[in-house]
Write a protein that binds this DNA or RNA. Structure first.
Lengths: 154, 154
DNA sequence: TCAATTTAGATTGCGCACAATCTAATTGTC
DNA sequence: GACAATTAGATTGTGCGCAATCTAAATTGA
């Protein structure tokens, strides 16, 4: 009962598992983004929401959630923090009062300028060729879709 | 001030960014693992810690943290939950009382059997060839290392 | 028209992730 | 041996992620 259980060769090691590679890459990205985004006063998920809104605001919470794979339990407090920060307005849709639409404030729109250099900063850190990144992006998208499909069926 | 800001062509769309692909793939993995691991009574990060311990117990908190890229602020409460669940023992090292070593209990060791089929279950869901997954694993590891290196220098 | 169902968000509770801070033990230096 | 510096974990506070539940608004349809 006191320690040193025998390792199990049938159990794959942590480092050989794809899920763990994703897990670590996600952490590494976060670590890279954090100081860059701190200058904008944003966390990483907040930055992703701002990307959505910079791409076109007036969208509903649900639409943002579908694009980011997040539900209202995550988004509602996050969006409220962006509102408190003065970057967005949350407004009930007059036509359908169930929906809340998100609009950029002047400040939120202006922040776009400060955020413009972020992708390049990160891109330089990675240093891979555009082609290599494109390929990796495609592989990850396929992986995501395969997982979601399997998770839905289960 | 009322809505419909102009989209910005210079800002890359969410779906074209590597960081977002990782972010989504991570969520998709989590969604896939959740119901499978629920049968073991584990969350995904807890499962990763158990993988470390099944690979050899008696390791320190610091060693687990380095392998998983987590600090004590995350690990301490997580390990305490595993202890409450009866899967591990936390024990101060007699030689160096600063360190806490983790040992599997009989129950934690036994859980290995129930967890044996997990990687295969997930692997089937992905459905890719072993070679394709190996390649993706290597790419992700390289990406992680590039990001960590850049983050350290900054 | 009005009751049943569906839908959009909000809320609550739990667990992970991490920065900042704290305590206690160890090491290094003199 | 005394004392500064380092190291291992624990603690606190903030924010993300998600399941479960709740409310209110819209839709369906008998």
């Amino acid at each position: 009962m006191t320690g040193q259980k025998v390792p199990d060769p049938a159990q794959p090691r942590l480092e050989e598992q794809l899920c763990f590679a994703i897990y670590q890459a996600g952490h590494a990205f976060n670590r890279m983004y954090r100081p860059v985004l701190a200058e904008l006063g944003l966390t990483y998920p907040q930055y992703l929401v701002m990307l959505v809104l910079w791409d076109g605001d007036g969208v509903t919470v649900k639409a943002i959630g579908e694009r980011m794979m997040l539900d209202s339990g995550t988004l509602t407090p996050l969006l409220k923090r962006l509102e408190v920060a003065g970057l967005v307005r949350r407004e009930r849709d007059r036509e359908d009062e169930r929906q809340v639409r998100l609009y950029l404030t002047g400040e939120g729109d202006a922040l776009r300028e400060k955020g413009r250099c972020v992708p390049e900063t990160i891109g330089c850190a990675i240093g891979h060729t555009a082609e290599r990144n494109q390929n990796l992006l495609a592989e990850l998208s396929a992986l995501r879709d395969a997982l979601l499909k399997a998770a839905d069926q289960a």
